[in-house]
Every structure is written in C-alpha cells, then in structure tokens.
Design a protein around this nucleic acid. Sequence first.
DNA 1: CACTATTTTTGAGACGTCTCAAAAAAAGAT
DNA 2: ATCTTTTTTTGAGACGTCTCAAAAATAGTG
Lengths: 380, 380
Amino acid sequence: MATLKEVADSAGVPMLTAFQALNQHDTVDEVTRRCVQEAADNLNYTLKITQIDIADLAGVAKGTVSYALNNSELIKPATRQKVLEAAQMLGYHLNISARNLRMNRTGVVGYSWHVADDPSRMNNLLDRFIYRVTMAAEERSFHLLTFVQPQKNADRVYESLISTSRVDGFIISDVTYNDPRIARLTAMRAPFAAFGGMYLENADFAYVDVDGKKGIRLVMDHLLEQGHERIGLLGWPSGWPFGDAREASYREAMRDAGVRIENDWIAYTHNILDSAAMAAQQIMNSKYPPTALVCANDLMAFGAKSYLDSVNLRIPDDVALTGYDDDPTAQFLGITSVHQPIDELAEALFEILLGDINQEPLPNRQIIFNPELVIRRSTR
Amino acid sequence: MATLKEVADSAGVPMLTAFQALNQHDTVDEVTRRCVQEAADNLNYTLKITQIDIADLAGVAKGTVSYALNNSELIKPATRQKVLEAAQMLGYHLNISARNLRMNRTGVVGYSWHVADDPSRMNNLLDRFIYRVTMAAEERSFHLLTFVQPQKNADRVYESLISTSRVDGFIISDVTYNDPRIARLTAMRAPFAAFGGMYLENADFAYVDVDGKKGIRLVMDHLLEQGHERIGLLGWPSGWPFGDAREASYREAMRDAGVRIENDWIAYTHNILDSAAMAAQQIMNSKYPPTALVCANDLMAFGAKSYLDSVNLRIPDDVALTGYDDDPTAQFLGITSVHQPIDELAEALFEILLGDINQEPLPNRQIIFNPELVIRRSTR
DNA sequence: CACTATTTTTGAGACGTCTCAAAAAAAGAT
DNA sequence: ATCTTTTTTTGAGACGTCTCAAAAATAGTG
C-alpha cells in the first residue's frame, strides 16, 4: 500500500495537509479534502500512521524514527526532538503486533484466574493478588492476559498460549504436588513464576510464598498462650501444599504443647460457606468440643461463625475463632486472622518473572515472606 | 535467517532428521546430531517451525500451507491432509504475532477488572460476569486482557490499548452518566459493549443489561404483599445509573402502595461491609423504624444482617431483609435476593461485541434481561 | 483428442517494526 | 588543510502470516 507522503504528493499538497484532509479536519477546505481523498482512493490508501510517515514528515530515515522513539542513545537530541514532534503532529501510535513479530515477544503475561466449573470461587486473597500483579506488570509496560483453565489437562492450555507466542510467560497460583503445568512449562523452558511452592520438595522453579506453617504457628501460640488446649482445625481436603502445611503446623504446635488431638477436632471442607458451617458443627459435636477453632482461611471462619452464632455459642467466650488471609470479611466480623503481604509479594513475583523472560534471571528466584497475626475480638 | 530445509540440505540429511537432531531427539545418533548442529550454527539458524518448513516438508507452496491450516475450501482434502501431517510431525504452532500483524487484529478483548486504589472491591457478581465473558471469548478463539484503570482519565488507557492494536475491542462495566470512556471509544469508532446502560438516556451503544427497576419491583411487591409498609432502603450514593434506577423503583413502588417514605428510611453506602452495617443502624434508629430493609446488593445485606443480629433484631420476624445479585453470601445467609442471568448475559454481550469487531454488527445490539426473585428465609 | 471451464496450487508481496552493517557527517588531531 | 576517530544517520532486510492474481492441474465437453 501507498504511504501518506505518496498520497500527498499525488494530490499536490503538503503531508500535513493530506493528513488533516483524510482526518476530515475542518482546517482544510472542502475542495482540497475531496482532492486528497481521491488521491488516496486511487492509491488504495487508508490512513494509518506508521514510522515511515513520521520519517517522511521529519525528513529522516525510518530507522532513525525507530531509534528516536525508543530513546536510543545513538540519536542526536535535536533529531529526536524533530521526530517526536512529527509523531505528535500525526498522532502516531506504535503498532504492537509489528513490534511483537519483530522482537519475538509480546509484553503479555498469562494468568489463569478461573478454573472452569469450579464452584468454590470466592477468593478475596487471590483477587487482591491479581490486582497487584496487574499493577506491577503495567508499571513495567506489560499486560495481563487472564484465561480459564480446564480441570483436566490444564497444561495444554498453557502450552498453547506460550507456543503460539500469545504470552511471554505465566503467573501461576494454586500449585499442586507434581503440578503438570510446572512440569510442562519447565520442559518447554517457558518463563513462569508461582505464588506458592516453599512446601514442595525439590521446588526447582521461581516462586514467592508466605510461610504458611509460620502463620498457623502464630495463631496456635496465640491461642495456647490464652490457655486453650482443646483446639479444632477446619482445613482443606489434603492435596494442596499450602493446606497440608497449615495442618502440619497445627499438629506440630499441639504436639509441642503436649496436647493430644482428638480425631473429630479436625474437619475438612472446600471453600464453600455451607460446607464450612457444617464442618464446624461436626467439630463442635465432638465428645470433647474444642474451645477454639482454627480455620484455614477467612471464608471458613465466616462459615464457622455463622454456625456458632446459630447455636448461640459466644465468640470468644465459648469458642475462640481464627481465620487466615485477613480479608474484608474477617475484618468486618472481627475475626482474628493472618495477614499475608500480598502487595510486596506480587511485586516481587513479577520482578522475578520479568528477569526470567528477559533471560536475565534474578539471583534470588525464590522468596519467602513472613505472615503477620492480626488479633481481633474473636480471640480476646 | 535460514530455513530448516536449508540446514538439512547443508548437513546432507532429510528434513525430519535435521528436525529431530536439533530437538536432541535420541532417535538420531550423536554424530548426525553434531553435524546438523554445526550446519545450523553456520547458517545462524535457531529452530523455529514456520509454515515455510511445513511447506518444504509436505512439498507444497507456503501459501498452500496457510490455506490448509485455516481449513480453506480451496484446498483439496488430500493436500490438506498432507499439510496437517507435516505440521504434526514438526510440532508446528502458529505465530499469533505474525497473524495479528498481517490481519490487523489481535483476537484480544480488554476488560478493566480493577480500578486503581478502589477499596470497595468485593464483587462476586462481576467476578462471575468476567468468568463467563472469558469463557465466551475463548470459545470464539478470543482472549481477555485485564487491565487496571485509574480513577481519573481512564479513557486514555482505553485509547492507548486500542490505538496500539493491543486489543480489538472492550467489555465495559460500571457505566456512569456521560461516561468519558464511552465518549472516547465512540469517537474513535472502537468496538465495545457494555454491561449496563438501559437507564441511560440516549444510550447509543451496544449493551446488555438486567432490568434493575423490575428487580427491585419484584422485591417490593413481595414485601408489600406480606403486609410490610415501613420499608427502608440501603442504596449507593447517587451517580451510578443502576443504583439510581433501583432507588427510583423503590420510590415508585412505595408511591404506588400509597406509603409515604420517611427521610431516614433511606441511607447510602459504598460496597463496604462496615459502612453498610452503620447505614443499617442509622435506618433502624428512625423514629418509625422500618419492618423491612431492602438492600441494593447482597454485600450490603450482609452488612445489615450483621448489625441486626448484633442488636438482636430477628430476621424476618422483627425486620425482613433483602439483597440483590444472589451471590454466595446471600445464599448462605438465607437472604432473599434477586438473581441476574449473568451466564446468558455474558454470552450475549460477547456476541454483540464480536459482531462489532468483525464489522458485521448484530441486528439487536441492546439486550435487556429479566431479573428473578429468589425468596429465602429472610422474608418469610 | 482438442478445447474450454473449473478446481487447485503457486509465489510474490505486504503488514509495521527493529537492528545490522555500511555510509555520511561531525569532531578531533596533526 | 588533511587525515583519523567518533558520532550519527541510513537503508535494507527479516520477523511469520495471509491473500491476491496468475499459473498449473484437473475435469468436462463435443
């Protein structure tokens, strides 16, 4: 296709005039407008400003324009200025696809926010997480592509996204044992960084994590200090490293305190309020009902609280209650919880990923953050 | 750069052998591997399978490959088969960037999921919405780019994304009066489709919506039928079309029922649990406290319920309570709510957007869905 | 079999950018 | 003023795809 300059020449007007004419700008009179339009039609031209047009207008070579726009040190300041002005006048916008093709990168990172048909999709923590990751990405001129992963063969979706050059890398959360996504991405040498991984054996990939064992230990010490001994646990079904770590930490703390755990002090549930309430009921129906209930996250604590309220068990007088994640619900309900430094964590995670994408891996590709106990009226 | 065939020829081996050699496949012996590697190094070749390689292997022209891969009717089935087999053997993956450049589209749609520094970010409805939109997009080979929009000048972010060809169009939610994003996108002729808009005057753009007035009317009629007259409203501060519509509908219903609304039966709050609880308190402290409380969404209803529980007002005996959105919290707490057909709505919205993107606009670009009352124990 | 009509394949070229090696301009040294 | 060094600009070419007009192959017809 023709360039703007060719159109302008053919119509016998300056480039800028041609530009304005095609933009229907009213600084150009009707006659000229029609004339330019005709020239454009003849050359089968549709207005689309490229670096070539800028070069033509500024009177430099197209290579110069590219360098100038990218703030290359090579270019003399005066020239750069000239180019930038021309770009400004023509309202230039870089074409990302062209850059992507040329540079073989996309400036996009993938994150699977949703799992298909997963009913337990209430997760304020991950919501905050993804928000901060997006911010971190955008500050570095990256964007986030969110996609849905199927329950089965999720790794294929990841493979397809990376091998079609749709994304440069991935953020991963909810890592499982022997996670097929990690196996696949590692095999493909595709950049990725995970939220979670410290309690996986031989975790040989980039991750950030918050020490979940430590978090539960904070909770347990707090409760034990207050004299609680019969402490129950509401956890997730095993299979998730972070969940298993929390349970392990609970058990360790009980052992260290010399308290034997009754079987029915522990119940498992998914992130569903109803199930959590039922699980709480189950625990409280123990022959030796606990005086404190530790929940694996705030959603469960909410569910548990509802149950306790419904049977008029007072919190904390009859039963102390704790959650995990410090989400808005726990804040509102006054439930003691554990705060995770999501903001810093997301930032760090993206930095690590970016290093891998740019083939300049950061020295420290595995960072562990400390959780913080937030004591509220549910335990005092 | 060289092609795989050139490398193979230079090394004096068949293409497939060269391919496997470069892949370190162990069907190829050490010597051949090194030989091929050397040839590749000489030609400065790095393995990257393109349509040209497929063409070389299948013995057809590169144009044929493109047609065959895109299931063009032009190509003879036998040829297509040959091409597909070759593609399979070489593990070919389309390069999206190249296609995007050539076709001047991206297969990506933008959606601003988060607003920067917005504290009131708990929205199960939009979470579900975005999940379904993503699904709809992916079923049509599109992807979703999520970005953060600033509180001010959000329209610039939209402009930049579309004019750099980062996305083909947008999904928009939380439309305001005289929304600058809509003005900007309309002026740019950028494709977009909104969730919400039926209660905007002269809404001259593509949207889907659920009739909010009708939804509140369902709630009101339900309450009035049960004999309630003193009905309070927990709403959002005015400025949001959907919020204003809900309030208007409340007022209409009261007027139609011949009930005068006391000033302090209405309170406003953002999507923050604490504020909602306080607003509920305010209303209940009225000289003529309502016997029913209508909330603009389920989050507020949750906040209100907490307050009511805390002062031992029984639901529904002392105060009936309703929410809106039918989210998991309302389901769990047994709060009467209004269900919006998010799943169908998201699907329809994406279809409309796709039509606009493909320059084949659907005949009906504004679709209104009906809400549905879900009665729970908070009102019976 | 020769000729036409139809189907199928071909190969070039364009999309807009970045980057390399080479050329030109400017600055510095003698 | 001439030559050398350094800075700056140039212009071609490649990235991988799709698509057009033209060529080749095949089928159909008398």
